[in-house]
């Protein structure tokens, strides 16, 4: 199981400001390890964020998103205390969901 995401969601005016850090190697499949063996590709392919059962962002990713991905976005229609849920799925089918209370 992958390490948890670090998510910050803060209400600024009527908008929720979201910043996410995910823990993922984002291997391209082009890199070689110390012994010269190709490290197999493994990267996040899908990211989605939901708030009050409503999708607020969805994304398809390729291998060229940087390691330990950072993502920031903004959305409206939520209040302090609501929960924001973020899910990623990688190319091996591994998935992780984390939740944060909007502050």
């Amino acid at each position: 199981m992958a390490d948890p995401m670090r998510i910050r969601a803060a209400l600024v005016g009527d908008k929720v400001d979201v910043k996410i850090l995910m823990a993922h190697e984002m291997e391209t499949g082009l890199r070689k390890d110390g012994e010269g063996n190709v490290v197999p590709a493994r990267y996040i392919v899908n990211v989605s964020a939901t708030c009050n059962e409503r999708t607020v962002l969805s994304a398809l990713w390729g291998a060229s998103v940087a390691k330990n991905p950072f993502l920031a976005f903004r959305f409206t229609g939520a209040a302090k205390g609501d929960k924001l849920k973020v899910t990623w799925t990688d190319s091996d089918g591994d998935t992780r969901t984390d939740e944060v209370v909007i502050g």
Partner: peptide
């Protein structure tokens, strides 16, 4: 899109109603 990358396409974000057409991230070049 990063034109000279072996994997050109980095990410494709979809914005539902109510989400700002804004995104910040980090890519490999």
């Amino acid at each position: 899109i990063v034109e000279k990358n072996p994997h050109l396409m980095s990410a494709d974000f979809t914005f539902p109603e109510g989400t700002d057409p804004y995104v910040a991230t980090r890519v490999k070049v």
